[in-house]
């Protein structure tokens, strides 16, 4: 009786120890299952269909068609430009935010997060209302006599960039802000006390230390840009067509084969880009560690 109870107690302790040590696995289970069912399974199905519907010639078609090649180049160019513009706009903003008083920081943070509260579709449609030939901007310019023909603002690369940067800017500001917040505020005065001019102190201290944020923001914005669909479709012209639109057309009009192959191409391009940026980021941080 006592022995039995002892064994029971011991196994209970063992179970408790197991739960304590590996209990976190259970926490991962729902998320893991979710990914497995709703992400991995469709992904594998897509890969299989790209090779079997009707066959691997889907990839030959994708590789040889001038349309898909041009669209892929446009997609990469648009994503790259969006990343650069976001970086240029977000960097000073995040810098100011990281050096501001608590109240200003809150206000600036709210301004960044505000767009998140309305849908992407609504914001893109709003841009069409502003940018189109009969839109607010052109009507105002023509009423003021600045121009007598409407400016071509929509259905251009400009329109696409405006829309995409507007949507993606928060994804650049937030990682930059986090990185800059971690920089010791005494480092810049320290550099200046050693004789560095403010610009030099900024270039040699702030910029290198904010690089993790630049890297994280750039990856986030670039990868999100690659999959953009609605914004280039509404604000761009036919020449601004991105891969997402072509995939949608293929799937709705023709079938899953080529659409799946294009999806796989987009996935591989994204992974390769991520890999390249990771290597670049690692090389950058190594180089920084070596510089005195």
């Amino acid at each position: 009786m006592t022995a039995a109870r002892e064994t029971g107690a011991r196994s209970a302790t063992r179970a408790a120890r197991f739960a304590a040590r590996h209990g976190w696995l259970l926490v991962l289970l729902p998320g893991g299952l979710f990914l497995l069912i709703f992400f991995c399974y469709p992904l594998v199905t897509m890969a299989v269909r790209s090779l079997t519907d009707p066959g691997p010639q889907n990839y030959t078609e994708v590789a040889t068609s001038p349309v898909f090649r041009q669209v892929l180049v446009t997609t990469l160019k648009t994503a790259g430009l969006t990343t650069l513009v976001c970086l240029a706009l977000a960097y000073p903003y995040a810098y100011r935010m990281s050096r501001a008083s608590a109240r200003t920081t809150t206000v600036m943070m709210a301004l960044v997060l505000l767009p998140f509260w309305s849908s992407l579709l609504v914001r893109t449609f709003s841009w069409t209302v502003l940018l189109q030939d009969t839109g607010l901007i052109n009507k105002m310019l023509m009423a003021l006599g600045v121009v007598d023909q409407p400016l071509q603002l929509i259905r251009t690369s400009l329109g696409v960039e405006v829309g995409m940067v507007h949507i993606l800017l928060p994804y650049m500001v937030l990682p930059l802000y986090t990185a800059m917040r971690r920089i010791d505020p005494m480092l810049v005065p320290a550099a200046q006390s050693l004789g560095a001019r403010p610009s030099r102190a900024f270039a040699r201290v702030t910029v290198p230390l904010s690089m993790p944020g630049v890297y994280a923001g750039a990856v986030l914005v670039f990868v999100l840009s690659l999959g953009f669909y609605v914004t280039p479709s509404l604000l761009g012209g036919p020449k601004n067509t991105m891969l997402g639109e072509v995939i949608a057309t293929q799937v709705t009009r023709f079938g899953f084969g080529i659409g799946s192959a294009l999806g796989m191409v987009l996935l591989v391009v994204t992974l390769v880009t991520l890999g390249a940026l990771t290597l670049l980021g690692r090389a950058g941080s190594l180089a920084r560690e070596r510089t005195p």
Partner: peptide, 8 residues
């Protein structure tokens, strides 16, 4: 008692 945790 011995099956306190496993059933859960």
């Amino acid at each position: 008692m011995s099956t306190g945790l496993p059933p859960r």
